[in-house]
């Protein structure tokens, strides 16, 4: 049990997928203008990453390794992720239309979010068991969602404070904020 707890903390904070591993940076800048959309995007990514991570692990173990075609990993994983994202999109349009409209272009963009693919590959590379894969995928995605949420909260406050110099407004201040958040997360290194 303890090892899973350690793994969750490590994946969420110490080796945060966005700030330490530098994956999935596009949505951190793109979808963080309001807390609502960040929350929706975060939830969608948690769902897709967990599903994709475990599905990719199963396919890797039962098909690719059995047939000895591990070199097709990249191709197959992308296929799985693309299908999943498409599936989530269809489902969301039916179940949660406001969320579907709020996420707009960013939902299909999860397909190209390298974080989803990165987590799937990391699972294989670090030789996780199935349970570890499940926990690691979800924890990494939650770490991503947390950064998204922090960022959206900070940006909303900065916007309402309205004291950002004109030449730093928008993306520049977001990147500076991301850098500072990265530094503070780096302070957690060595905890494990």
């Amino acid at each position: 049990m303890q090892e899973y707890l350690l793994m969750i903390v490590a994946a969420m904070f110490i080796n945060n997928i966005v700030l330490i591993r530098f994956m999935g940076n596009c949505p951190v800048v793109g979808v963080t203008s309001s807390v609502d959309s960040a929350l929706g995007m975060g939830a969608a990514v948690v769902f897709v990453t967990t599903m994709a991570g475990t599905t990719c692990w199963i396919i890797q173990k039962t098909i690719l390794e059995v047939l000895g075609i591990e070199y097709l990993q990249t191709l197959v994983f992308i296929l799985v992720i693309a299908t999943l994202v498409q599936f989530v999109e269809i489902l969301m349009q039916k179940v949660a239309p406001p969320l579907y409209r709020a996420l707009g272009i960013f939902l299909p963009l999860i397909t190209t979010n390298c974080m989803v693919f990165g987590v799937s590959v990391l699972n294989i590379k670090e030789e996780h068991s199935f349970m570890e894969t499940l926990v690691f995928s979800m924890a990494s995605a939650v770490g991503f969602a947390i950064v998204l949420l922090f960022m959206a909260g900070l940006r909303e406050r900065m916007d309402s404070a309205g004291r950002v110099p004109k030449l730093l407004q928008g993306v520049p201040i977001t990147l500076i904020t991301a850098g500072m958040m990265g530094l503070s997360f780096a302070g957690l290194m060595g905890l494990d």
Binding site: I59, I69, L75, L79, T83, F87
Partner: peptide, 18 residues
């Protein structure tokens, strides 16, 4: 052939699900 058949089958399955 293994590669073609496996990936092809997976692609078909994915499109079926969608």
């Amino acid at each position: 052939l293994t590669a073609i058949v496996t990936v092809g089958a997976m692609g078909m399955l994915a499109s079926l699900i969608l």
